[in-house]
Design a binder for these strands. Structure first.
Lengths: 156, 156
DNA sequence: TCAACACTTTTGACTTAGTACAAAATGTGC
DNA sequence: GCACATTTTGTACTAAGTCAAAAGTGTTGA
C-alpha cells in the first residue's frame, strides 16, 4: 500500500528491508518505516518526532514501537544515538562516525566531521582500566545565526 | 541551625557562601545547601538526587528550587552539567575541566582527565563558522567491574 | 505455499524529568 | 533595621521513557 504513494518511498523501503535482513534483524513494518524515514529525512530525530513524521506520511506507528525499534536498530548498528547532552534522545542513521555541534542559543544540532571517521577516534588515559569503544565529542557554542545577536551585547 | 549538626557541614557552607558572593550571586539558603552538598559528596548528581540527599541531611528544599539553583550556579560557572548522553542532567562542582567515561552496562560515570585542563580543549573544523567555547568528550565502553562479565560472551 | 512458533507490536497505564506561574518568603544595600 | 527586588515555594502541568500482557506478524521448514 505504501508503494503506491511515492516511488521514492518504496525505493527507500526496499533498501531498508535489505539492510535489516543483512544485519540479522527481522524486517517488520515499524522497523522498515523508521529506518527508511531516517534515511529519507536525515538529521537528528527524537522518538516522538519520528512518530509524528510517520503519521504525516500516513503510517500510524505506536510510540512504544518506535522506542523498541530504535533500540533494536541501535543494537544492530544501523542507527546511532546522537549524544547532544541531557534531554531527549536523538537518533540518526549510522553511516559515518562523526561528532556534533550544539548551539547554546537555539539548540540546533550539526554534524562535525571526525578526522578518523571510525569509532574509537580518541584514546582515553591508560588509567581508565576498562575497554573503551567510542569517544563522542560535543562542541558547544553559538551557531552562525545566533552568534551576531549575542556578540552585540559582548561589545557594549 | 544546620551549623550545630555537623562541624564539617558548616565549614562547607561558609566556603559556599563566600564563593557565591564572589561569583556575584545572592547566597540564599537553597544555593548554599546545594553547592556545599555537591562539594561534600562529590560525583555527578541529578536534581532529584540532590533533593533526596539534602532531605536525608534534614534540609527540605523544593525540587523546583534545585532546578533554579543549578541553573543559576551553572550560569555563574560554579557548577557544570556533565554531558553523559540523553537522560536526566547530572551536575557537579566546576573545578577543573575534564571529560567523562560512561559504562554501557551499569551506567557508572567517571571523570577522565583533560590534557588541556581548560575549556576549548579540542578545535572543531574551520568549516563550522561559529564560535565554539567548549568540547566535551564522552568515552563509552565497559568499566572494570562490567568488562569481564560481557567479555565471557565474546569469547564463546 | 502454508502452518507453526517465536519474536514484535500494540495498548494503556504508569514513573520520572522538567516547566509554568502566582503567592509567600528572604537576602542585600542603604 | 527597612524596603525592595530577587528567590523560593507549592501546585499543577507537559514531556519523555518504561512495564507488562494480549494480539499480531515475519520467518523457517515441510
Amino acid at each position: 500500500m505504501s508503494s503506491r504513494r511515492d516511488p521514492d518511498t518504496s525505493r527507500f523501503e526496499n533498501l531498508a528491508r535489505r539492510r535489516l535482513r543483512e544485519a540479522g534483524v527481522r524486517a517488520t513494518r515499524p522497523r522498515v518505516l523508521v529506518y527508511s524515514l531516517l534515511h529519507s529525512v536525515g538529521g537528528h530525530r527524537s522518538v516522538d518526532q519520528i512518530v509524528k513524521l510517520l503519521g504525516e506520511r500516513g503510517h500510524r506507528v505506536q510510540r512504544m514501537s518506535v522506542y523498541n525499534v530504535v533500540a533494536d536498530l541501535q543494537a544492530a548498528s544501523l542507527v546511532m544515538c546522537a549524544d547532544v547532552g541531557p534531554g531527549r534522545a536523538l537518533y540518526e542513521v549510522n553511516d559515518r562516525w562523526h561528532h556534533h555541534f550544539v548551539c547554546r542559543a537555539c539548540g540546533r544540532v550539526e554534524d562535525v566531521e571526525c578526522l578518523e571517521g571510525r569509532k574509537p577516534c580518541l584514546s582515553p588515559p591508560e588509567s581508565l582500566a576498562a575497554q573503551v569503544d567510542e569517544a563522542q565529542v560535543i562542541f558547544r557554542g553559538l551557531c552562525v545565526d545566533c552568534a551576531p545577536a549575542s556578540r552585540k551585547s559582548s561589545y557594549s
